[in-house]
Design a protein around this nucleic acid. Structure first.
Lengths: 174, 174
DNA sequence: GAGAGATAGGTAGGCACCTACGGAGTTGTC
DNA sequence: GACAACTCCGTAGGTGCCTACCTATCTCTC
């Protein structure tokens, strides 16, 4: 990880440290890279455990294991993601034989997903891995001085007033 | 944004609040979603300014504008991203006519990218937008209680010991 | 009962990154 | 000079999310 370069002798302006920059909403890119780093790192754990696992399976599997059958939209709401994301994850899980899908007799539009025997067994097998990942997550959060709360606060700030709104206010002549 | 559900009357275990969870490295997914939220939000700013802009252009444009011509690898190092990412961004920027590419006479492998007149004009036009986004970024960081530093610390923690290493240690019988 | 409005979810395309792989070129060693 | 080791970067495929759009179904109002 490179460090800030300081000012050059010639006096030429030095570009911001892109990795730590807030400029131009560069934090978005940083978060993405960090996200992918964590996903990759976690996936090494699954590989070492001898299983094929997609990170996006986590939320859906957990919900189905604990709550039983749920419709696409219910899952999307519970997880805070879009329904097409759930649909895509469902396709992947179905392909792996971990969940099954059926119509809801009470509403022909609904697609209800439920864990299969294979899926339940898979989840049981992964419990120790998830337990370890839980613990590591808490370690890291502690070492980072509670990054989860900082993210909470950032999201709250964006909920209160979006980047777009803030820029609009700044750029509106008063 | 939904809140934690608490325990149900029946005593059925309640799934973790996925959005705030550290379990199973779920923070990775959260970071990705937040990243995309920020990108989308910022893109509304560009749209309102009447320009087409891809978030991934930011780092590359800034480096080329300030430092002058740079090779793919130099850009990758400076931005902390992979060279194929730079290649892809370059293709997109070239298509928009904002940069040009040439070989390096000193090393036939190198591809040197440089800003075009159109690109320089484009960057000048965007200066006020970037300035506003800078300011908004600082606002948000302040409201979030310095999320940038929390991210620094998380990355440092991962540099010190990866998730994989931490899980391996936890799961190794002592 | 008819029709407007709302809801559920599939499909398509896009975003911004990644790793793996491979070919071409350069540098270092003998 | 020959060759091994290293470097540069293009290509391919993948990841996990998103929005836009559309069809089908349900609910509400008259």
């Amino acid at each position: 990880m490179h460090k800030s370069k300081g000012t050059r002798r010639s006096g030429v302006p030095v570009p911001s440290d892109y990795n730590r920059s807030l400029g131009g909403a560069a934090i978005g890119a940083r978060l993405r890279r960090l996200s992918e780093r964590i996903d990759r790192d976690a996936n090494r754990v699954y590989q070492a455990a001898g299983v094929t696992f997609e990170q996006r399976w986590l939320g859906v599997l957990e919900q189905l294991v604990i709550c039983g059958p749920l419709a696409v939209n219910d899952l999307a709401k519970a997880l805070g993601i879009s329904h097409p994301s759930v649909s895509q994850t469902r396709d992947s899980l179905k392909k792996a034989g971990l969940i099954a899908e059926k119509a809801d007799p009470a509403d022909a539009r609904r697609r209800v997903l439920q864990i299969t025997r294979k899926g339940a067994s898979f989840a049981r097998k992964l419990q120790p891995v998830w337990s370890a990942l839980d613990q590591v997550g808490r370690q890291l959060n502690a070492e980072a001085g509670d990054v989860v709360t900082a993210l909470d606060r950032l999201e709250d700030a964006l909920d209160r007033r979006s980047i777009f709104q803030r820029v609009t206010i700044l750029r509106t002549p008063s």
